[in-house]
Amino acid sequence: MHPGRRALIQLLLWSFYVLLSLGMIANYQALSGTLVAVMVAVGAALWAASEALRAWALRGGWLDLPPRALLLRLALAPPLMAVVAQLLVYSFNRLGLALGLLHFAANAPYGLGVLLGYTANTAILLWLWLLAWAGGQWLQRWRQGEIAKWQAEAAARALELQVLRAQINPHFLFNALNNLRALINEDPARAREMLSRLSNTLRHTLQHSAKERVPLAEELVVVRDYVALEQLHHEDRLQVRWDIDPATEGASLPPMILQLLVENAIKHGIARTVGGGVLEIVLRRQGARLQIEVSNPGVWVEGGAQSSTGLGLPHLRERLKRAGGEGADCRIAAADGRVRVTVELTA
């Protein structure tokens, strides 16, 4: 709460208390200047005591304490403060009397018992005040907690969606659909074939294999469908040279590794090169080692281009570390206007 607003509320609260008390006193005795002055002093002392309680509670972090410690403090602090407040009022009275400014009626009650009664009264007021304050604090905390929870949930959902979107690549999808629309008129038979390939690609992406490894032959089917659709878009600008070592037959690899390399090569290489070029996919096997090499025209930009989602390469490295086997490795080399990404893993 704003300090100015708190001060206003405190002023209103304790003024109200002082006025109410004076009103009640006026019922059975005439109000004197002394009575009013003493009641104002009591109001001021209560204000000071409640502020002190608040500062004490905040500094001690009471609201974060375990229930027993908290209850102990909530129970004992107000009476303690009430004693201090009554001492202040008592000193005020003594000072007033000594200076001859206050004149108590002869029949005014006094003595230790009366002082204790006043102190108990003050303690009850301060208890109520402290409980109300703590209740307000808890309510505020609970609200803030709710908001933070909603925000965290929204952020998590946004991230999930972003990951999903990055997998599907809407750019690819809508371009493919647009090209299909034209192809339906131009070459219906080929359009039908391409539609099947698009279905396969989408199904594969959505099912997003949770398996650690898939057969290379299976991955190749996915990649060939994808490349065919990209060729529909880029036509002569995308030439593909496959070089597959027969020894790789029967090899396996973590799913979507080759697909990711080919996607990146087209997205960052072919699509950004005027006139396009050759996409080269080389698969080799030496003993238990499978080597995948994908190269494309273009230049390698360290840290990636602006439009990149930045999910590609770190994601690939992570997957290799987890499921690539001993010594799995990903290297990037750029020379003569071509970028070559080489992945080595256990077949």
Binding site: N178, N179, R181, N185, E186, H233, H234, A271
Partner: peptide
Amino acid sequence: EDSRLARQELRT
């Protein structure tokens, strides 16, 4: 348009 088919589609 970079894709021939996309140009064809627009023409259609």
